[in-house]
């Protein structure tokens, strides 16, 4: 495997398609030998992060959510951007708490052109072979 592999996914910003976002995350994590438990955490995190973006805007019809997955040697990083300029992220304290239990680090921010985005990283507490 190369040092860094990047996979990109663009989906309609709707909960219906988050399954794909989760599947890609779990597929890549499985490739890194993440355990079942770590993968379940990752999937919950992807859900939480993506929902936060999607729900930052009232009307999400015709809006896309762009995700990019960066696979490193022992960790996976995921970035998400909602293609909308009139959405504002407001992360609840509860959401912060959930994510801090699920991933190593995460943040939400407005990208330079005003689109709401997230970034997260999770590394593997490696399964001994």
């Amino acid at each position: 495997m190369q040092d860094k592999d990047e996979i990109r996914l663009s989906i309609p910003a709707s909960a219906e398609f988050l399954r794909l976002a989760r599947l890609i995350a779990s597929g890549l994590a499985s490739r890194l030998n993440f355990t079942y438990e770590a993968i379940e955490d990752l999937r919950l995190a992807v859900d939480e992060l993506c929902y936060s973006l999607i729900s930052s805007q009232e009307d999400i019809s015709n809006t896309t959510l762009d995700l990019s997955y960066l696979v490193k040697d022992e960790s996976i990083e995921i970035k998400g951007i909602l293609n909308s300029n009139n959405a504002k992220i407001q992360q609840s304290q509860f959401s912060k708490q959930i994510l801090s239990a699920l991933v190593n680090s995460h943040e939400f921010k407005q990208s330079l052109d005003g689109k709401p985005s997230f970034w997260m990283a999770k590394s593997m507490p490696k399964a001994p072979n």
């Binding site: 599947l23 499985s30 770590a38 379940e40 399964a127 001994p128």
Partner: peptide, 27 residues
Amino acid sequence: RSPTIAELAKEAEVSEEAVLEALEAGQ
């Protein structure tokens, strides 16, 4: 410890993709 997906696939005698899909569907 928690098993990896590869270990689950081997034990269940299915592909890793099938395991991941089933976990997704089951959730």
